[in-house]
Computed example of a mutant assay.
Amino acid sequence: MKVGSACAFVIIGFVALGTGRALAQADQDQSKCYLSFNVTERFSGGRSAGRDELLGSSISGMSTDDGIDLGASIGRQFTFSQRLFRAEIEATSRSDYDFLTRDFRGDPFSEESTFGGVLDDHWSIFANLWHDITVGPRTSFYLGGGIGISGGRLTVEELIFGDPSGSKWQSEDAWQFGAGVVYQSRSGAQIDFGYRYLDFGVFRTKLKGPDGPFFGPPGPMTLGPLPNPFNTPDGGELEHEMTGHAIQVSIRYAALSQLIGLRR
């Protein structure tokens, strides 16, 4: 298990224990525990690198994409050294991330290949710590961050010839930091407007070559398919480092009883 993931699970365990106790006492102390529903507009970017073994060339490029993510958080507010903090677990289902990258052969007579990739079934879990600063009777400011894990399936394919290609399920260490403003409504629910910087880690997949002894033409100087002298399915490897900026809007409830409207 990766170091970051191990630390995240330890923190998640402590937060879960404290949050469970707070949920059991939510009606007696609604200011301690909260449940939050999150909608995020994410603007992602990434850097690709790798090696195309079929053509003996490097893969490199940068790409951007955007999407809407849906998630939920459960946490507890506490006081430390007369300052307010919140420890929480945040789980998010994230939209697919599409990207393009290039295959540079270093040959002035050949065309560049284009690789298309997608990270789908994407999800993340963070253990966060936020510092709350009261700036008005109904308004507060917060900042902080968290560490955790991010997972999904990376699928890559050469768009002209279809080879090499690859697909792999995986999870990676992830982290985030951010800040925001919280408004306390008269109904008791809190509305959170926040910014996040996200680093989802580096996703990798092996590239598989064609099953037969042929692969597509490497450039306009070739009139037809060329035999693969190695006759090997090894097509190389591609990695994609994924980061993002996000605007997040959340509705936070101080207790489960407040969510279902059973106020004492």
Rank of each mutant, 00 (worst) to 15 (best):
L198T: 00
R153P: 07
R94T: 08
S110V: 08
L262I: 08
S150F: 08
F37L: 10
Y253K: 03
L159Y: 12
L129T: 06
A127C: 08
V39R: 05
F9C: 03
L259P: 02
D234N: 15
L256I: 15
D96E: 13
N228F: 07
C7D: 01
I191V: 11
S165Y: 11
N128L: 04
D29I: 03
G209K: 13
S185H: 04
L119F: 07
F193K: 02
Q170C: 08
D121R: 09
S187R: 06
Q258E: 12
G18L: 06
F141W: 12
L17V: 11
A72N: 04
L262Q: 13
P227C: 08
R83F: 00
A174H: 09
E241H: 14
L129F: 04
G145W: 00
S5R: 04
M221H: 11
R204I: 02
G244N: 03
T19V: 11
A127S: 11
Q25I: 00
E111N: 12
I191A: 05
F126N: 06
A72S: 11
I160S: 10
D69G: 02
Y142H: 15
L70S: 14
M1R: 01
G152R: 14
H245W: 01
D120S: 11
A87T: 04
I191F: 10
S167A: 14
E41P: 00
A246F: 00
R47E: 11
S44L: 12
G71V: 05
G216S: 14
R105Y: 07
D27N: 07
R51T: 13
S60I: 03
G4L: 06
L129Q: 05
I260D: 12
I125F: 09
P220W: 13
S5H: 02
L207P: 11
S81P: 00
R21K: 06
L143A: 12
V182I: 15
L259R: 02
W130V: 01
G117W: 13
G56N: 04
R105I: 09
Y97D: 09
G212T: 15
Y183L: 13
L256A: 14
R76E: 00
S44D: 14
I251D: 08
V135S: 07
G152E: 10
W130Y: 15
E241G: 12
I149K: 05
L226H: 02
Q248W: 00
I12H: 02
T92L: 03
L17F: 04
R47W: 01
G194H: 05
S250D: 09
L35C: 03
S5N: 06
H245Q: 10
L17G: 06
